[in-house]
Design a protein around this nucleic acid. Structure first.
Lengths: 75, 75
DNA sequence: CCAAATTATACCCTTACAGGTATAATTTGG
DNA sequence: CCAAATTATACCTGTAAGGGTATAATTTGG
């Protein structure tokens, strides 16, 4: 299963030519976590996800449900 | 402590004239969770937060860090 | 084509999230 | 003003998230 969040992380990571290990180290989370994140696990912890997103100058925020995939595709 | 997410939930909830108990029941989460959510706890589980946000036709999505507060204020 | 790097899966263990309940504090409207 | 409702805190418990490590599968570029 894949989710917009998972796709976002994987795409941004590759844009910077970083490995999952790199991300884990830079974000201060476990390697396992980065993998589960990129595989769309739904039960992750909010703060840990944000630690990763901050590497890309992003964070989790409430977004309208319908437009969310569309918008995600744009940026 | 308060966060954009916490503020969003509390504000939307009041807009619909619902109590924390109502939200908890409708979202299928514990009352304790709704409270910690509205108080800005950072370590919540992603899926549970989304269960609540869906009541407002929203969900968590990656958003650019800087503009996030500004945008949150608008909608 | 193959070796190195990267990613995926599986295991065990520790920790703390989430739920329930009970009680106190606060807010609200009658 | 006060009673009812709502919200906040505290405690205990089960469960699973997250970390570490080890190993298999996959991808990549030399």
């Amino acid at each position: 299963m894949t989710t917009p969040l998972a796709a976002f992380v994987k795409q941004r990571r590759k844009l910077l030519h970083l490995s999952q290990t790199d991300i884990a180290a830079k974000a201060g989370v476990g390697l396992r976590f980065v993998r589960e994140l990129e595989q769309g696990k739904a039960t992750l912890r909010l703060d840990k996800v944000n630690q990763v997103l901050r590497l890309f100058s992003h964070e989790l925020a409430p977004a309208p449900l319908d437009r969310t995939q569309l918008i995600g595709a744009l940026l």
